[in-house]
């Protein structure tokens, strides 16, 4: 699932553009941001639409994987 994030956040989470890199972000930070996008507490252009597609468990699993990217 996390590999689908790469088209905007860069291969292996290393972005070559203005959208943030995910590599190096701690698990808790990713879970918190995804949850805030999901509930709408954090505004965004596209992440709200994306985060709403995942369950809490899926967000946990995605964050777990991303946290292993260096």
């Amino acid at each position: 699932m996390a590999q689908t994030c790469y088209v905007c956040h860069g291969p292996d989470g290393r972005s070559g553009g203005p959208v943030a890199s995910l590599a190096g972000l701690p698990r808790e930070h990713i879970v918190r941001q995804m949850t805030e996008f999901r509930t709408g507490r954090r505004p965004g252009t596209v992440m709200n639409r994306i985060a709403r597609s995942y369950s809490e468990e899926q967000i946990g699993a995605i964050a777990e994987f991303i946290a292993t990217l260096k």
Binding site: V7, C8, G10, S15, G16, G17, T45
Partner: peptide, 28 residues
């Protein structure tokens, strides 16, 4: 979930940001 961009842009300036993110998508 999913779907299209907001119909009415807000103070976030979605249209300009999404133009920047279009180039970002292509790069990545």
């Amino acid at each position: 979930a999913g779907g299209v961009s907001v119909r009415t842009p807000t103070a976030l300036n979605e249209r300009k940001l999404e133009a920047d993110y279009t180039y970002n998508w292509y790069t990545n």
